[in-house]
Design a protein around this nucleic acid. Structure first.
Length: 881
DNA sequence: CACTCCCGCCAATTA
DNA sequence: TAATTGGCGGGAGTG
């Protein structure tokens, strides 16, 4: 109700702590009194308990289909809260009002109004997605229950699911601590890892659900038993240890929720049918598949799904199989996690970035509660999960003596190992990834094809913002927001493919910058990358797939690009979604230029966007850069770092491509990709182009390679470059790729003016931008001087590059941004200068980059610092916006 | 009829 | 022992 009123009044602000008693309303609710039509007549206002009510009305008015959509949207919107939500909300509400309909529905409160999903929305509306670290929000179950007018039991359902994702943690009896989505990405990451361990193999086969089912069932039995639940929990959180305990509750909603999420994360298609999930989740019963049990499980899954839907992490879909249509859910949340989220957070309006703080807070809180060492451990461990620890630990501990502990320990160990690994990766990656990836991440974030596309396109600053939010929020909303902005650029929708399907990179107008990447599929260096990769893949797939869509459906993975070692992404998702909505999109693009200052004419779009980004990036970059530089004078750029890190940590990891090696590998002619680097201080007049190319199939590398000089590069006088607006690389050409150059060109042309450049030559360039050469890794041309702007910049570039790599075919505008930052090629910026004032403030934190010295120091702790830095940066970036 | 999933009984846990 | 949590499944609303 509140919401509703407010919406009118001040639609924008999310409902936070409204004292209003829904319960009252409830009493009044239609149920008791079907309400008089009169009210209805007047307006829906009076009645609408929730925003939903309005929606319903609208929906009712609209066609059935519309209804569903509307509903969904609504759900999402509230979630978003912060920034964007405003507009949308208002809009919706307005709409609702207009419709005024309602009568129909109002009459009965209908179950829907009482649905868990709605309830969850209301619940979520009360708390910020990204609460400031400083403020700890405690949730009183009783209070909330009364406010929302529901029985406490229902609140438990919600809280348990939220708890499984670490959005909240139990502090004490009736008390929960609200953490928001700050740690969501990490949690998801962990879950993904865990999921891969447990279900990964299976997922590989995913195409066929049925098969999967069987497989799952079997494996589950096998695999799971051990770590199983524990692992999940535990792994997911350190705290779990204590918490998880074994108690009966293990099968609880919490665990089920985690497992359920894991299935999505592991699934290539990102779609999980209800029955499969139920089967998988029925641990023991596998064989017997008790019908009743199955039913029960399904009921629970619906409960969980409702909450996850409200969170914007999944959406309901239907999968048509041989037998028929089955209910399923599709993951629409972030696909990659890692730091992105963090970054996102930073950007996000509300966010407060600092995990650290949170930790601190959590720690305190935890300690108070529990006062155990574990806690400490945890804290150290994961920045991410702070508070959770507490949960029931205290209680559980006493209860659970050794057994639990042992189990816990085991699971912990495992988990920890995983966690550590992740962390390391993340951290390492974060430095590069975060910065670099950010942009990329944006792309991926969206997850769905729909989303993916959008982000990129956005115009300037929008990009940043949009991106951030998008990341952070899986919600469609963000994407939506972006849309508007994007239109000019390539559009995604159908267009995805259009854009740059195969091409390895994108080019931008000179003014800004460009980047590019080749198709690379896979490598995900870091996590973030994956997203990009995914996108790229998708895009590629899309291209190919589009026509092939059908094929994919059936043979999901096969269809995927042959060349690259694609990972996960698959068409599968697509296949299901044949609908298109999901289409894989791809690309990226420059954004619209609303104003590109310097940029050129049409491109402006790209440029402008770039600019904004730049700023953000700068922030990020600059800090990071310094670190890097310091660390390795030689290496200089992020690349190196990345490489190193990747090597160190990743070696294990799969991404063959990513690795360092490549420098030379990159050489491959196939589709050469280049990175353009403008000369900075060190290199004055030359612009460098590095090839990032990779073999179409293989790929890997990009950024890393670049650093190494060995890679083939081209140096071009800046002047020369100036004339070129951009470049496109030829598509990989997936065999299938239907996309004709023409399409691409067309798209390109629109944005860039470069009509047909063709695909064949991958190149690009820019005049203005000056990039530092990260290039010279070894030489560390510029690197040495930390202060140098170049350094700062370089990191950015690198990152961008790396990101690019990941993304394979797609290119991002992001990188561009970076360049812009540098634009000022003219004068070397000092780090400080680069940073915006705001940023500085943020940076001030001790750990922060603030001074060069600090940076240097950081070397030792690179990882940490980087992460922290990034975070900070993120934050800072946000602030600017 | 199949889906969804609300509702609330009642047992396990806690305090 | 009382209160809190939360598993569970009947059965109602929806399509």
């Amino acid at each position: 109700e509140n919401i509703f009123d407010r919406s009118r009044m001040a639609p924008k602000t999310p409902i936070k702590n409204e004292p209003v008693d829904l319960s009252k309303q409830r009493g009044c609710t239609p149920e008791t009194n079907p309400i008089t039509p009169v009210k209805i007549i007047d307006r829906p206002q009076p009645d609408p308990w929730t925003p939903t009510a309005n929606l319903k009305i609208l929906i009712s008015a609209a066609s059935p289909d519309m209804r569903d959509r509307e509903k969904k949207k609504e759900l999402f919107r509230p979630i978003e809260n912060s920034e964007q939500s405003d507009i949308p909300d208002s809009l919706q509400y307005d709409i609702v009002d207009d419709s005024t309909v309602d009568e129909f529905e109002k009459q009965r409160p209908s179950r829907k109004q009482k649905s868990l999903g709605l309830l969850c929305q209301k619940f979520l509306a009360r708390y910020p997605n990204y609460p400031l670290s400083t403020e700890k929000t405690t949730i009183s179950l009783d209070e909330v229950a009364s406010i929302l007018g529901v029985e406490r039991r229902r609140i438990y359902d919600i809280v348990n699911v939220l708890e499984s994702l670490h959005l909240v943690s139990r502090v004490a009896k009736n008390q929960y601590c609200w953490h928001g989505r700050h740690n969501l990405s990490q949690t998801l990451k962990m879950l993904q890892e865990a999921g891969e361990l447990q279900y990964g193999e299976l997922m590989t086969f995913q195409h066929k659900e049925q098969d999967l089912e069987y497989k799952f069932g079997e494996q589950k039995k096998e695999t799971i038993p051990d770590s199983q639940d524990r692992s999940l929990l535990g792994f997911s959180e350190p705290d779990c240890i204590s918490a998880s305990a074994n108690s009966r509750k293990d099968k609880s909603l919490r665990i089920m929720s985690q497992k359920f999420v894991m299935l999505f994360l592991v699934s290539k298609t990102k779609i999980v049918t209800l029955d499969i999930a139920a089967k998988i989740l029925i641990e023991e019963t596998q064989d017997t598949v008790d019908h009743s049990k199955f039913k029960t499980k399904v009921r629970r899954l619906y409960d969980i799904a409702n909450v996850l839907t409200s969170l914007g992490l999944i959406k309901k879909v239907h999968v048509t199989e041989e037998r028929g249509r089955k209910p399923a859910f599709k993951w629409i949340g972030p696909v990659e996690f890692s730091e992105k989220t963090d970054e996102l957070r930073g950007h996000s309006p509300t966010s407060d970035p600092l995990p650290e703080t949170q930790k601190g807070a959590c720690a305190q809180y935890q300690t108070s509660t529990t006062g155990k060492q574990r806690f400490t451990r945890h804290a150290s461990f994961n920045s991410a999960q702070p508070c959770e620890a507490t949960r029931r630990k205290a209680s559980s501990e006493p209860n659970s003596p050794r057994q639990e502990r042992q189990d816990e320990n085991c699971s912990k160990m495992i988990n920890l190992a995983a966690v550590c690994r992740q962390k390391i990766e993340e951290d390492s990656g974060s430095a590069k990834n975060s910065n670099k990836t950010l942009p990329l991440s944006l792309l991926p974030v969206p997850g769905d094809s729909d989303f993916c596309v959008k982000p990129l396109p956005q115009a300037v600053f929008p990009v940043v913002q949009a991106d951030v939010p998008s990341f952070s929020l899986p919600l469609g909303i963000s994407s939506q927001a972006s849309h508007p902005s994007t239109p000019a650029a390539f559009k995604t929708e159908n267009g995805k493919p259009t854009l740059v399907p195969n091409q390895p990179f994108l080019c931008f107008p000179s003014s800004s910058l460009f980047m590019l990447c080749g198709g690379l599929q896979e490598n995900n260096l870091g996590e973030p990358l994956p997203t990009a990769g995914d996108l790229g893949k998708r895009s590629a797939e899309a291209q190919a797939a589009v026509p092939l869509a059908v094929c994919q459906k059936r043979s999901s993975h096969k269809c995927s690009l042959p060349s690259a070692p694609v990972d996960d992404e698959e068409p599968a998702a697509k296949k299901q979604t044949l609908e298109h909505s999901d289409l894989p999109l791809s690309l990226v693009v420059p954004k619209k230029p609303s104003e590109s200052p310097k940029a050129e004419p049409s491109q402006g779009s790209g440029c402008s966007a770039a600019v904004h980004l730049e700023t953000n990036r700068l922030d990020l970059a600059s800090p990071a850069a310094p670190e890097v530089a310091n660390k390795e004078s030689t290496k200089t750029l992020d690349f190196q770092e990345q490489e190193k890190q990747s090597q160190n940590k990743d070696p294990d990891e799969p991404p063959p491509g990513n690795e360092p090696i490549s420098k030379e590998n990159s050489n491959q002619p196939f589709q050469p990709q280049y990175l353009y680097v403008q000369p900075t201080a060190g290199l004055s007049s030359f612009n460098l182009l590095f090839s990032a190319n990779q073999a179409p199939g293989a790929i890997s590398l990009a950024a890393n390679q670049l650093p190494s000089l060995s890679v083939p590069c081209v140096m071009v006088p800046s002047a020369a470059l100036a004339s070129f607006p951009l470049v496109c690389s030829p598509p990989f050409t997936s065999p299938l790729s239907p996309v004709p150059d023409g399409s691409f060109s067309a798209a390109a042309s629109t944005n860039f003016n470069v009509p047909s450049l063709a695909s064949t030559t991958p190149v690009f360039v820019s005049t203005t931008a000056v990039v530092t050469p990260k290039v010279s890794p070894v030489p560390s041309v510029d690197p040495q001087q930390p202060a140098h702007p170049a350094l700062h910049l370089s990191p950015v570039l690198t990152r961008s590059c790396s990101a690019v790599k990941l993304d394979s075919p797609v290119c991002m505008g992001h990188p561009v941004t970076l360049l812009k930052l540098q634009q000022p090629s003219s004068a070397p910026l000092t780090p400080k200068s680069i940073r915006p004032a705001h940023h500085e403030a943020f940076f001030k934190t001790p750990g922060s980059l603030g001074d060069p010295v600090a940076w240097k120091k950081n070397e030792g702790n690179q990882i940490r610092n980087a992460s922290s830095v990034q975070r900070r940066l993120e934050i800072s970036s946000t602030s600017p916006d």
